[in-house]
């Protein structure tokens, strides 16, 4: 009997052939986050993942998309049906966004990139198409390989196609800003904000939902400061910090002259890079064993280290 997840799509099989079974190889997306994880090995052959939306079923809130598709193109197609994904708008390709695994500034409202991939299809170190996860919105069939692939920088497999969870675009999205509000109090007051950002002085809130609910939340904010409606979030600095949400305030002095922090999440975009984060020895050893299992010949994106960020 043929397994239900057996891959027959000639586009994916051709991509596997292109990746092949020998020699250093990596996928090139839009290079928006190309420097993450350190410089890649210069001799690495670069390939491009196939592109295109394969299957979109709005009623199931899932979309099957090839990883070379841009996030912008995907979100444009989804928005026609009133939907979106957790992938950050700033990302280049879908595969790049997943391989890097960085959340956007809308985590509170749109969810985490690591929770977006329901099924992954990737080309293995020996040039075969492998599937992990499954097509439904809920699934515990076997080990959660999508979690391993997201954020792995293409070092355990090269992402070819994914099934993503979509979520509905709310009836209204409204950004408000205040120069005299405490963002941490705001976070405790607003039930489900799309985003709470803070640059040390100004607080931005993304309110989302039905119009009466957003109006009510905006009215509640009035007791915590003076607010103006703004077009959207502020410009983000290029260096990205990842902190426990409770450690934003204690690290403010290290962010440089400008920063924007995602309150309640702990992501900070600053004009100074975050000092390298310590990884415990036992965890590093476990990471290395995972790498050895999935890519014993170290041919997948050599030089890049998901632990070095």
């Amino acid at each position: 009997m043929t397994a239900r997840l057996a891959v027959t799509d000639p586009v994916l099989l051709a991509f596997a052939d292109e990746v092949g079974a020998d020699g250093p190889v990596a996928v090139e997306g839009a290079r928006t986050r190309w420097e993450v994880g350190g410089p890649g090995h210069p001799d690495t052959r670069l390939v491009r993942a196939p592109a295109g939306i394969v299957d979109y079923v709005p009623d199931e809130m899932t979309v099957t998309v090839r990883c070379g598709t841009t996030v912008a193109e995907l979100h444009q197609a989804l928005s026609a049906e009133g939907q979106r994904t957790a992938l950050p708008e700033r990302a280049g390709t879908v595969g790049g966004a997943l391989a890097v695994g960085e959340n956007g500034l809308h985590v509170l409202g749109r969810g985490r990139v690591r929770e977006a991939a329901l099924q992954v299809r990737y080309v293995s170190d020996d040039g075969k198409v492998v599937t992990g996860g499954g097509p439904t919105v809920k699934n515990v069939t076997g080990f959660d390989l999508p979690r391993l692939l997201v954020g792995s920088l293409g070092t355990v497999g090269l992402l070819a196609e994914v099934i993503l969870r979509t979520n509905p675009i709310p009836a209204v999205t409204r950004w408000v800003a205040s120069d005299d509000a405490d963002p941490f109090t705001v976070l405790d007051t607003i039930l489900r904000p799309g985003s709470v950002l803070w640059d040390g002085n100004r607080t931005w809130i993304e309110l989302e939902g039905h119009v009466p609910a957003v109006d009510a939340e905006q009215a509640r904010l009035a007791s915590m400061g003076t607010w103006i409606e703004v077009d959207g979030p502020p410009e983000l600095e290029s260096h990205r910090w990842v902190l426990p949400p409770g450690e934003i305030q204690t690290n403010v002095d290290g962010f440089g002259s400008r920063f924007v922090a995602s309150v309640g999440v702990g992501t900070v975009w600053a004009d100074v890079a975050q000092p390298s984060r310590a990884v415990a020895a036992g965890v590093t050893a476990l990471n290395q064993r995972v790498k050895e299992q999935f890519d014993p010949r170290h041919r997948l994106n050599p030089g890049r280290d998901p632990g070095a960020r």
Partner: peptide
């Protein structure tokens, strides 16, 4: 923190 370094083990 939201995105610990290394694989999402």
């Amino acid at each position: 923190e939201d995105e610990p370094a290394g694989y999402d083990l």
